[in-house]
């Protein structure tokens, strides 16, 4: 019998709640209280997440966010700023000691991104992992990924772009030199793609989630079973949301 992992699908949660769920899973799984877990999720309201090391005010136009009703949150993972709009976001939380997870961080990126590549293949999209943390299709980025390791547990989360509005994205990010805004936008348009752009049609969150489920099952030779959060995870999610991710102290700390 194949190893059974937990699948969580949590649509339409706030940025604070989404980041708190990942962290709650990390605590719970590090204590052996839940099996390795894959979660597929969306963001409501739309939000920008920034990497742990980024300066919020250097990266994000906070007034523009307010005007457009876009939230912002600092992640516990490194990497860059991401506008979470039309996308499927995934996270995987698994003990570092699990035999499917390479000890080497870059190799483990490759392995987990392998699940996304296999998932995209289910949608008839050929893609490949490009270090450090991107997946590209048709030579353009379709997925960005970020990993942290805490309490001997790996958390990796990332995006699969369903559609992208580069102009709107740049209206929310700080551009170092306004004179080159148009050039930046056209450069990024050249470098970023989406499921919709490649397939020429809209694909629903559910269809992408189904494809990604198969991707993870194939990559790790496991079965993903629909599950729910434990009571402790629900409690921790509420705590982390209130005490960390929604606070000015956390989000403005750099």
């Amino acid at each position: 019998m194949k190893e059974q992992w937990r699948l969580l699908i949590t649509e339409n949660n706030s940025a604070y709640s989404n980041m708190a769920m990942d962290r709650a899973e990390l605590v719970s799984i590090s204590k052996g209280k839940a099996p390795p877990t894959v979660r597929f999720f969306t963001w409501k309201p739309r939000a920008i997440s920034i990497g742990y090391f980024q300066s919020l005010k250097e990266e994000v136009d906070l007034d523009a966010c307010k005007n457009l009703g876009v939230d912002y949150v600092r992640r516990i993972t490194g990497g860059g700023a991401v506008f979470h709009d039309k996308e499927l976001t995934y996270s995987i939380v698994i003990p570092e000691s699990h035999n499917q997870i390479p000890k080497n961080i870059m190799e483990s990126y490759g392995r987990i991104c392998g699940a996304i590549v296999k998932g995209l293949k289910q949608l008839d999209i050929e893609s490949s992992y490009v270090p450090i943390n991107d997946i590209i299709a048709d030579g353009k980025k379709i997925s960005g990924n970020a990993q942290t390791r805490k309490a001997k547990t790996v958390l990796q989360h990332g995006t699969i772009l369903m559609d992208v509005d580069v102009e709107e994205m740049f209206s929310l990010l700080i551009v170092p030199d306004e004179k080159i805004r148009d050039k930046l936008i056209s450069d990024v348009k050249q470098r970023v793609t989406s499921v919709k752009y490649i397939l020429g049609k809209d694909i629903s969150f559910e269809d992408i989630a189904d494809a990604m489920k198969i991707g993870f099952e194939e990559e790790f030779n496991i079965e993903l079973n629909n599950g729910t959060f434990t009571d402790e995870e629900i409690e921790l999610t509420n705590k982390f949301e209130k005490d960390f991710f929604s606070t000015e102290e956390w989000n403005h700390r750099r």
């Binding site: 990497g51 742990y52 090391f53 980024q54 300066s55 250097e58 516990i76 993972t77 490194g78 990497g79 860059g80 700023a81 961080i105 450090i132 943390n133 970020a146 990993q147 942290t148 390791r149 805490k150 750099r254």
Partner: peptide, 30 residues
């Protein structure tokens, strides 16, 4: 990755007073 540094230093002694290292890199542990 792209590194953004904020530095306060003493111009005479060339010693760092305060340093903030930001950017989209990864560091373990964070």
């Amino acid at each position: 990755k792209l590194l953004k540094i904020f530095l306060e230093y003493n111009e005479k002694s060339k010693l760092i007073d305060n340093l903030k290292i930001t950017g989209d890199f990864f560091a373990y542990p964070e």
